[in-house]
Every structure is written in structure tokens, then in C-alpha cells.
Design a protein around this nucleic acid. Sequence first.
DNA 1: AGCCAGATACCAACCACGCGGTATGTTTCC
DNA 2: GGAAACATACCGCGTGGTTGGTATCTGGCT
Lengths: 183, 183
Amino acid sequence: MSNARRKQPEVVRRRLLDCAEALAVERGLAGITVQAVADAAGVTKGGLFHHFPTKQALVEGMVADLLHRLDREIDAAIEKDPEPRGSFTRAYVDSVFVGREFGFDTPWAALSVAMVAEPHLRRLWAGWLDERQHRHQDTDDDPMLEVVRLAVDGAWLSVTIREGEAASDIAELRQRLIGLTRR
Amino acid sequence: MSNARRKQPEVVRRRLLDCAEALAVERGLAGITVQAVADAAGVTKGGLFHHFPTKQALVEGMVADLLHRLDREIDAAIEKDPEPRGSFTRAYVDSVFVGREFGFDTPWAALSVAMVAEPHLRRLWAGWLDERQHRHQDTDDDPMLEVVRLAVDGAWLSVTIREGEAASDIAELRQRLIGLTRR
DNA sequence: AGCCAGATACCAACCACGCGGTATGTTTCC
DNA sequence: GGAAACATACCGCGTGGTTGGTATCTGGCT
């Protein structure tokens, strides 16, 4: 039965991805070693390699997971938005700013660290962006909206760089960006 | 005299920094190993360690050099700008977009790769930003200008991620951002 | 001017260590 | 019982860093 089972592979797998993400944020991409991730997840190295055949698979799995979470988050935000024009861009804004008041524990933080450094990961990221941008081209294809999205990237970078220490008032900046998507 | 092959330590030092930068761009930050940098510069590993006592010193030296070049570039652009309001922000814009038509060989490309990945480098970068932002607060302290600067960061990230392949028309985007700094 | 001592700029070989990865057990689930 | 889910121990290799030596430059003394 499922009441007191001791081994839960999918739980371990999740914890591995989460720990990899956390390590990428606080110790940089260099700190995301197989050993460190395994230790943080309370598993031995061999145990890790049972779930991910190679380190690259681990990192790509983490990125894929993050992108997937980001997808769902954005889709949900779009659905709630009554106004179609710029809905993707607004969802994009909130994907970075929501939950940003304390610390920086959104998917983005880990993405930043991982993606920019390794070239082959950049392509995954660029591909995601292209796909998303193409999908929303009839609601979000506007010069000003593009500027807003770029500013979001910049803001995310700024927050990541300052490690959560709020630069200027983040809530105010968010309001301003949201406002720019209407007009 | 200076016709024969003299020993020019500062030339070698420069070449080491340049090669480190180039490697960071094309192979990612993981590709910037002491051996690789030394080889690319035509020097042995021992020779490199004569100029930089440790790898961290090498990377920090590279970053410091890049920031210094960026400083001069921006200062020069500000001086040419007749209108004081937003002059720093415009210089900031051009520091990314000028020379971007072909490839991506500006200081920024290497900065991106190096800075985001390692936490202690992020602090250097954040410090530079804070200092610069504080220095120009009476000409560039404006909500819209802040948005523009963030968009610049985002654009730079985008260009870096796509490895030079022009996303939307870069020249047009630059014009738009410059336009937003006026008004 | 010429020479010499010492500092500078490099090279070549080496080392300890941590990395990603593997092979082989041992326990737990169905 | 047999497969899945781990643990343990080990390996080759590349890494950052060191050591000791060798050219090469520089400045001062005679």
C-alpha cells in the first residue's frame, strides 16, 4: 500500500532538482557539483546517478523543469487577464516580480545563473523565448511591449545580481511596467 | 632597442586578459581555465601565474579591466551629449548597441558570462552600477530612464543569449530607447 | 664604455585534489 | 524472486597551484 512506504523515488528526484537550483543561486554555477547536490539532497552520488545518467542531464532536467513551471505560471496569469492585448507581457512581468518581496526564490534566479554561463543552455532559453514570442505575436507584438519585456529581463538580472536586496522599490517598478503595457 | 624581440610583460598581460575574455565568450565561463588561457596567449601556465598569483586574480583583473574600459566609453559618450538630462542613460544605451551590428565583441559579452555566474563577481558589478547611478542621480534619476536602463540590460542579455544573431532590428530598438530618454 | 649582480620574466615538470563517472554490492518495493 | 532504489568504494583525468631552474633585462660601479 501507500501509507508507510519508505522509498519515494519521485520525491528524491524533485529534491535533487530543487537542491541543484538552490546551489546554483547561492554558490554560483561552479558550486553546482554532483557531490554537492547529492549531499544537499541527502543522497549519495551513486543515488543521484541513478536518477540522472550524467551531470548534463541533471542540469538540463533542472532547466526544463524551471521552464515548465514558468510556462504554467504564465499561462495561468494570461487566463486571468481580461484584456487580451499585452496579456503575455503582463504575465511575463509578474512572473519575475510576484513573490519578490522577500528573498529571491523564484525559478528565475536559478535560470539566470545556469543559462548565461553555458552556451548550449542558452539555446534552450532562446528557443523557449522564440516559441513563446511567436505564440503571442498577435496580442503582444508591439514595440513598447518589447521594451517592457526587455526591462523585465533587466530587472530580473538586477535583482539576481543584488541577491534579493531590493534596489529601488520593486512594487512601484512593477506597477509602472504594467502601466506601460496598457495605454 | 625596441626592434628586436624584447620582453614586454605588459603586452603579455594584456594578451592574457584579452584571451580570457574571448574564451569566456565563446566557450562559456567553464571554458576559461588557466591552461586554456595560457595556451591561447602563447604562454605557459607558469608564465601566467607570474602575472596573476591566482585564477581569481585573473578573472577579477579581467572584470576590472572591462569595467574600466566601459567607464571610459561611457564618459566619452556623456561628454559629447549636449543635453544633460538622461545623458548617462543614453551613453549606457550606446555602450551596448554600438558596434553590435556584426558579432558581439564588446566588453559586455564577456561580462555577462563571467558576472552572473560567480557570486563574488556580481558584487563588483553591483558596486559599479551603484556608484555610477549615484554619480548621475541629478541628471538621470527618473522612472522612465530607469526603465530604459533596465531594458538595455535585457537587450544585452538577449543579444548574448542569441549569440549575436540579431533578434528584432537592433538599430531600430536603439533608436526607440534613445527616444524614450528625451521628452 | 663594459661588466656584473640582482631583479624580472618566463619555462618545464611536477603534485595534490576534487571532479564526473563506473562497477558492484545491499536494501526495499511489488 | 526480481526489479527498482539506493549505498560504497574506486578510478582516470583535468584542474589550480608550486617548485626550481633559465633566459633576459636593468641599473650602478669602475
